[in-house]
Design a protein around this nucleic acid. Structure first.
Lengths: 255, 255
DNA sequence: CGATCAATTGACATCAGTCAAACGCAGTGG
DNA sequence: CCACTGCGTTTGACTGATGTCAATTGATCG
């Protein structure tokens, strides 16, 4: 599907403000995703330590930047765009294990090689940390470790939900679950129940690989939902959820 | 399938040796699973702190001891037997998200309620830690936090593998993957390639719920493997792997 | 306008699920 | 000792949801 060249970064070393003392200062201080990311455990006073360790990298759409099985040299924090994480079988079958939105931390594999691949869906910006810098940060900021554990636990919960979806839900239930999940990402938790417009960054193929279905089944299912008045399929990647409640019933297996 | 009574423990407060100073001593020091569990990061000198916090609990076969959605009051460390972890849909469909063998740490969910249920397969022994005690331990032993992060990362990798299995593998590939995984649990990593006898603690139903299949399909697939000379199905829960290499080819999708 | 690529739709095939029967084994009680 | 029961497993016949293959539509971009 994608050519997946071996990990090539289009890194552009970030221009960093220098403070009076010559120390790097507030490159991270102005980061818009910090409140939602693991970085939020670093105090204002220590923020320059973070900026020092991070290298901002821009990744164009479709470019792979983590190769499954390659040596795990870096950690990443997504600051813009959406990344797909996946595993593949030798014959090309692919399972997307998750989508990483801004704030998401990547690279939690403990082993010395990545257990999954990663590819930019749209234009992605990440903060890259070398393994060494990351180790230093972990040693100096115990809070960071606790925060990463929290992050990992949340991912585990998401993974368990996905296993339930992949192992036991029907195609309609899977698509409904997916749409609701996507809604919860963009929306504040208190959804008002009214129509909700989504702008999905990923293709039908990505959705299929995420839900363990084929492109055709995803397309047919969306068409069926449209025929039922549950959603509206706009042009491009827009989908409007017309009846969140009915999708909810479907997603939880009571359709 | 199981009646799952609300969490009832058959706790028997562990008899603990008292040292000269009146402090509890080496209940954990003699623990056979400590080398493989998160507890191995606590130094000998501090081992009594661990013993102080742990309550050993015996759980009979079939008894549920974590209920999905219930308040997450305790953490567990499995010391004997096998536990199944699962999520369920309202209509009873069930996905087993993993099996916890001795050494496995349970309860990593950060939220205040359990994201999964847990039930003993055979007679299970666990060390139970209250949330408060666990927090104390984490505060006092930073190494423990790092170790838990490692554990969580490993579980994430396993979860990603399982997503690939559930989303993209055929029934034969799933069963082959499962048998090989089970072999690797019991065996030291250097499998000699010769026949390998497994004694699975779980029923066909559990295997089916783990692999996202039905009992019938699991049974048929095992019969097919037997007809191919790949395995031997003994009475009870014994299965002998006759050709690990052919199972390997199957499991990785080149069957 | 033609080329390309993603998405949709249709016709058909198939893998795994469903329903049902039979088997094997263990435990119980006559 | 044997009949009876319960439960998990195996096997068979059939069904159906989803995959496969293929044609069409629609959007984007030179």
């Amino acid at each position: 599907m994608s050519d997946m060249p071996s990990c090539q970064f289009e890194s552009r070393p970030r221009r960093i403000m220098m403070g009076p003392s010559g120390l790097q200062t507030d490159f991270c201080a102005t980061c818009t995703v910090r409140p939602n990311s693991v970085c939020n455990v670093i105090d204002e006073g220590d923020i320059s330590r973070l900026a020092e360790a991070a290298v901002e990298t821009i990744i164009p759409p479709g470019r792979g930047f983590i190769e499954e099985g390659a040596p795990a040299t870096d950690f990443f924090n997504v600051t813009a765009g959406t990344v797909k994480l996946f595993k593949a079988l030798p014959d090309g079958r692919r399972q997307i294990t998750g989508f990483a939105a801004p704030g998401h931390f990547l690279g939690l594999a403990v082993s010395d090689s990545y257990a999954f691949g990663a590819e930019a869906i749209d234009t992605v910006r990440v903060c890259r940390f070398s393994r060494e810098k990351m180790t230093e940060l972990l040693d100096d900021f115990p809070k960071l470790e606790r925060r990463l554990l929290e992050e990992a636990s949340n991912e585990l919960v998401a993974a368990q939900n996905q296993m339930l979806l992949l192992g036991r839900k029907t195609a309609r239930e899977r698509v409904a679950s997916f749409l609701l999940d996507q809604m919860r990402i963009g929306q504040p938790p208190a959804g008002n129940g009214g129509p909700c417009r989504l702008n999905l960054p990923m293709t039908r193929g990505d959705i299929a690989d995420y839900l363990g279905l084929t492109i055709e089944t995803v397309s047919r299912t969306l068409s069926w939902m449209r025929s039922q008045g549950m959603i509206e399929v706009g042009k491009g990647y827009a989908i409007t959820l017309l009846s969140v409640s009915r999708l909810d019933v479907l997603a939880s297996g009571n359709g």
